[in-house]
Design a protein around this nucleic acid. Structure first.
Lengths: 219, 219
DNA sequence: AGAGAACCGTACCGTTCGTTACGGCTCAAT
DNA sequence: ATTGAGCCGTAACGAACGGTACGGTTCTCT
């Protein structure tokens, strides 16, 4: 649909229009109309259609645009001792909680969930790719390095990451998406990040007596 | 809006209409129209409006109706030893995974998330109340009893439940809502339930050396 | 049987919104 | 200066859909 497949070919003006779209999306959610976007962006509807094809194209381009803005800094894996691993996990968890509690993230995820129902667009896969999967790709090398250094014990890195996911986010994301006003001030986020990290290390650290492993699949 | 505040005052026919609505919801998501419901339910639109007021009333009644169908059996808290606690947690986790991976649950949660964006209805709070919160109310007495029996160590039951939530669901629910086809066959669900239970017991069981507790909030 | 209530099926109305069309403005190139 | 491309603002069209009206049918009660 959309002519814009990669974010690089966007002009300044087009980026500004997508930012305006993003703002409308945060405010109005799926009730976003082409008219409201053109009003907010101070552009004509004709331009929107010329640039992005149709409404779905605009939404897709907006989601892609937001995704391209979130550049995940690679984590330094050199000299990874226990303290560094702990700090890395805590920072990772804190950043993540900050992201998913932001209005932009909530709006994007809600939009993607809505569209996943009708299945006419693949916003869900885009959000998933730049959210959950990007986080996995970012953290798993750290986990592998930590395992090599004897700091962690696990078999499947992806499965281990999923547990970290659960310990960090717990019911926070779904409650946010469902409109529950979860109190997420900075101190609370920091405390949650520390707790999740400690629990994760307790489960996968080598000092754990039970040497807990993921039970092998049956069947 | 709706005249039906409690599920008890629903006639057989009305329940059948709501079941039809549910089916349409699973198939078409938020693209559900009054016409499609009346077609599926073999009733007139006039009846829909007479019974449920408007579209939001129909959706709300449907969500309530589905919620009323999920009756949570209370858990026997008597004689709760370690084996019984483990079995209870595993069963709880397994049932829960089965519920959230069902088409009905996915459709309902998607609908509620969509409406939470516009904020015109409170489907989100209804789903939350009968999903996340119902689970908490169901499990927390077990946790308290287990703590009294010396089987668990924790301070805040709600916080502890949230960790169990995270260990069981991890990224499964959000991936399902976003349209990712997670493979969730019965054996996999059982394995996940066992893993989550073992991890939970490792974190909160009294045999844990580190005596891990939720870090107290700072600030 | 007859009356009346409830309901089905369909047609209809008004609004919203995606999409298109068009006149006028800006600005760069010739 | 002229021209033409690109874009803004607005108007207009058509489809979809929420909501309403109404004739015809079935069922219940008497």
């Amino acid at each position: 649909m959309s002519l814009q497949e990669n974010s690089e070919s966007l002009t300044e003006r087009q980026q500004a229009v997508l930012d305006a779209t993003l703002a409308v999306m945060v405010e109005e959610g799926d009730a976003l109309t082409m008219a409201s976007v053109s009003r907010r962006a101070s552009c004509s509807k004709e331009t929107l259609y010329k640039w992005f094809g149709d409404r779905d194209g605009l939404l897709t381009a907006t989601v892609r645009w937001q995704a391209s803005k979130v550049h995940v800094p690679l984590i330094d894996k050199a000299r990874l001792n226990k303290a560094a691993l702990t700090a890395t996990l805590e920072t990772f968890a804190r950043d993540w909680l900050n992201v998913i509690s932001s209005g932009t993230s909530i709006a994007l995820n809600r939009m993607a969930v809505s569209h996943a129902a009708s299945g006419k667009t693949n916003l869900g896969s885009i959000v998933l790719k730049n959210g959950r999967h990007a986080m996995g790709l970012r953290l798993e090398p750290v986990l592998m390095t930590a395992r090599d250094a004897g700091l962690l014990l696990f078999e499947d890195a992806d499965d281990t990451f999923r547990t970290f996911f659960g310990l960090v986010l717990r019911d926070t994301q779904i409650r946010l998406l469902l409109g529950d006003d979860v109190k997420l001030a900075a101190p609370q986020i920091l405390a949650d990040a520390k707790r999740a990290t400690q629990q994760f290390l307790a489960l996968y650290g080598p000092r754990h007596d039970l040497n807990l492993q993921t039970p092998k699949r049956e069947g």
